[in-house]
Simulated scan of single mutants.
Amino acid sequence: MNTLRLIIALEETRNVTRAAELLDMSQSGVSSALARLRKRFGNPLFVRTSNGMEATPRASRMAENAREILSRVKTGILDLEEFDPSTEVADFALSMADVAEVVFLPRLLACLHTEAPKVTIQSASHRKEELLALMETGRVDLAVGYFPEIDTHAFFQQRLYDHTYVAMLRREHPALEAPMTTSVFSNLGHAVVMSPARTNDLFERFLEHRRINRSVVARTPHHLSLPSIVAETDLMAVVPLATGAYFADLGAVELVALPFKPPVFSVNQHWHRRNHHDSRHTWLRQKMLTLFNTATDRWLSLERELYGDLRRRAR
């Protein structure tokens, strides 16, 4: 790098003394460096004329290339990188359960359509044992949801908001005629999702800790099949509140408060240290935080209607 700067300075100033001042070097230091270059390339590079140190054709070509190289170094390495979502292309890989996609993707994609038209999103669900490796290698940029296993020093996390659970029953289900009790909850048949969604594990541990039993009649790997299952049977399904609200809006199921104070879990976004300072990833994380936070929590009023102030109890 110093050699490139030396060639440019000599070519521009045509004077060893002024080149030395420009480079903050001694005159003897510039002369010694020029002598080494002449020996290395077998070319005088700069010759004395009435107009000063005139560059040879070889030195002129070297100076031209040196300017291009230094410009690339400055813009590609030394300058602070900035991401312009309105013009730049970017492709992000997210990890989230199918139930989370229903919550996050519509609002995120609507935002990208207007603010970042050349940004694309790829979402997939990953099991615990593969997610960390995918994030370490950069194949997953951001994990969004409840991921208690991502707790190593190699990862960062940021809380978006807190969330809880609700029960779903078909319309005109006999259990809707009276307040739900723990006995009714335990005696009803349940449809349960067995998927990479970590919230399922959390609720199972909660029931086990409280010694609350339930009769599991059906297991499915997909949350999105639950509305049809519940609507056509007498089975109950317990899902995150946002998911239940979405299914209820479709008109297929009724939401029912659980007969006990359900657990509250944090919805976080997680990323690997390798992406922490990347301008593209920083922009995406900030956009997620702006779209999804306690202030924009669309389900908080429904939660309070069903359970009161769950969050104070959780704290």
Rank of each mutant, 00 (worst) to 15 (best):
H113F: 11
R36L: 10
Q269G: 03
A252Q: 04
F155N: 04
P179Y: 10
P85Q: 08
E136F: 04
A295E: 14
Y307N: 00
R285L: 11
D201Q: 14
F156Y: 11
L10P: 03
F292R: 02
R315P: 01
R48K: 15
A191R: 08
L45F: 13
V264Q: 01
D141I: 03
N2Q: 12
T290K: 14
V16G: 02
V119I: 13
H126N: 08
V217Y: 14
E204K: 12
L291W: 03
L105H: 05
H173I: 08
V16H: 00
D141R: 02
S225C: 09
G52L: 07
T87F: 05
T17G: 02
L160Y: 00
P240H: 05
A90E: 10
N293C: 10
L284W: 04
P148Q: 13
D234G: 11
S86R: 11
E115R: 15
R312F: 07
A197W: 00
I7R: 01
Y146M: 03
E115W: 10
T56S: 12
I212R: 09
L160C: 07
F203W: 11
S301G: 01
F206K: 06
M168N: 04
Y165M: 02
L108E: 02
T17E: 06
H277V: 09
E81C: 08
S32V: 10
L284I: 10
S28V: 07
P221N: 09
L284K: 04
E12A: 14
S31W: 03
R280M: 05
N293R: 01
F247Y: 13
R36Y: 09
A248R: 02
L224M: 09
N51A: 15
A245C: 08
L202C: 12
D24H: 14
T137Y: 04
S86M: 07
L80E: 13
A314K: 00
E204Y: 11
S60E: 14
R198W: 07
R48M: 14
R280N: 03
T56D: 09
R298K: 06
Q157L: 05
L78S: 13
A231G: 12
T3I: 14
P196W: 13
A252V: 03
L108T: 05
M25G: 02
R219V: 12
H223S: 10
T17S: 07
K39F: 08
W283Y: 15
A237S: 15
K118D: 06
R311E: 03
A33I: 02
H222P: 02
I229T: 13
C111N: 12
R280C: 02
W271Q: 00
V256M: 08
H276V: 10
D24E: 14
S26T: 15
E12R: 14
I8M: 12
L22N: 12
F206W: 11
T282Y: 03
D91L: 10
P85G: 11
Q157R: 15
P262C: 04
P221D: 09
